[in-house]
Amino acid sequence: MSLLSLNQVNKRFGGLRALTDISLDVEEGEILGLMGANGAGKTTLFSVICGHARPSSGEIRLGGESIVGLRPDQVCRRGIARTFQIVKPFGQMTVMENLLTAAMFGPAAIRRRDRALGHCREVLDELGMGDAASQPAHSLTLAMQKKLEVARAVATGCRILMLDEVMAGLTPTEVNEMLAIIRRLRLTRRLTILIVEHVMKALMELSSRVVVLHHGELIAKGTPSEIAADENVLEVYFGRAAP
């Protein structure tokens, strides 16, 4: 059984069809890349999975159980954590306090402060953020805030980590660093990862499988090399080849 499976998920906003008949399975331990132009529906898909929006129709199952209609905090406690494209740190709180919230309220549910502190410190160290623990989140650079987003999501103790354009705005060095971090986290935390990315290099290098969205529809599924050669994908991204 797949860890996360979507079956014929549709999402309409009034007359606009944001998602049409999306069916996909995410296997435990894999890194699934999500590709598509702006407006293709990637953010909507994230919203629908995490409970920020309710699908108009279709099924979403986590470990076999339906999560449709659950609130975002309930979805989180079932094991799904996400980052936001535009970072949303708890600005006036320190980096450590940001993670503490996740550790206390996420699936890890560590209520005792000393244990929670230990847990969060481990996560911070894995991301190379140990030194920044007592800094207020609003004072961090963008790159650090993006790392904080990832750290906070991981600190929840989730099984599935959903990354929404986590490389956006990073320099090539920072991108490479983030790639290494994600790979490492997947192993040490036994994560299954769903990643939306525009930085193609990052997406292709990380993902074991890629799906492509276009106008709310899934137009291709496969390994990175299969996708790179897929005719539909090439047409959507580059236009029809001259006859």
Binding site: P72, D73, C76, P89, T101, F105, G106, A153, T156
Partner: peptide, 8 residues
Amino acid sequence: EAAETVGV
């Protein structure tokens, strides 16, 4: 929104 996403 972020708080809700981490389980609050």
